[in-house]
């Protein structure tokens, strides 16, 4: 497979990101410079690559579950006479008016601390863009196309699989992109609930008044989110 030319700068950025992660423990002077009062400016409680792995497990795992739920729900909602559509509308409206942070905090008393409540909130919020994309994509298929497909003797399942889903794929993919970026960004908030991820140095730093930890965690979390956004923009083209 030939590497598309557009992917080269992205791969260079990803390499720079990994290099920075590797170099971070050796750059004490850099992290300590803005914070002369901090005694131990280098984050050394847990390896950066372990945090990155945990962060990706959490957010990608949530997106996989959310994609399955969102795709299935979107297909179900567009079958029949759309009897379940109002439920989806109500769900979208509710999710838009309840912030994800509140959802994570509400899940805490129910699920305990750690990765579980974060995962639940991530799945719930990542589900919505996929669901929205699936419904919009399937709605966008022209009725004439469906008629023609049925006219050639295709069954409902084949119409869905061979006509509707391929035509709706770009819209579904853009929903998936929103879900991935949202999930990576929100997973960092999960550090407050005790989930280990790139947000952990931020939370530890804020608790111990160590601005250098916050700087490192913030930098790498933001960098990862931007990288993921670029990568998915490339895929969607």
């Amino acid at each position: 497979m030939r590497l598309p030319r557009r992917a080269v700068p992205l791969l260079a950025q990803a390499a720079a990101f990994l290099l920075a992660l590797w170099a971070a423990p050796h750059l004490g002077a850099l992290w300590g410079a803005p914070f002369p009062d901090v005694q131990r400016p280098v984050w050394d409680q847990r390896g950066w690559f372990a945090l990155l792995g945990a962060h990706l497990m959490l957010s990608v795992g949530a997106v996989v579950i959310a994609a399955a739920l969102g795709l299935g729900g979107g297909i179900l909602a567009t079958r029949g006479q759309g009897r379940l559509r109002p439920l989806l509308d109500a769900l979208f409206a509710l999710a838009q008016s309840v912030p994800p942070i509140a959802a994570i905090a509400l899940a805490l008393p129910l699920l305990g601390f750690g990765a579980a409540p974060t995962m639940l909130a991530l799945v719930l919020y990542a589900c919505l863009p996929v669901l929205r994309g699936t419904v919009a994509g399937l709605d966008g298929v022209a009725p004439a196309v469906l008629d023609a497909a049925r006219g050639t003797g295709m069954g409902a399942a084949r119409v869905l699989w061979q006509v509707e889903l391929p035509l709706a794929a770009p819209v579904i993919l853009s929903g998936l992109r929103v879900a991935v970026v949202l999930s990576i960004a929100t997973a960092a908030v999960g550090a407050m609930a005790g989930a280990e991820c790139l947000g952990t140095p931020i939370v530890v730093g804020l608790a111990n008044n160590n601005g250098a930890y916050v700087l490192q965690g913030g930098l790498f979390t933001a960098w990862l989110a931007l990288l993921a956004d670029r990568a998915l923009a490339l895929l969607a083209r």
């Binding site: 960004a185 908030v189 700087l215 931007l226 956004d229």
Partner: peptide
């Protein structure tokens, strides 16, 4: 749009350094 991608908790943290400076 770019700001939207930055996790909020990271942005708050990153703003602390320049403001403290």
């Amino acid at each position: 749009n770019g700001l939207q991608v930055v996790p909020s908790i990271a942005l708050f943290g990153l703003l602390m350094a320049p403001l403290a400076g």
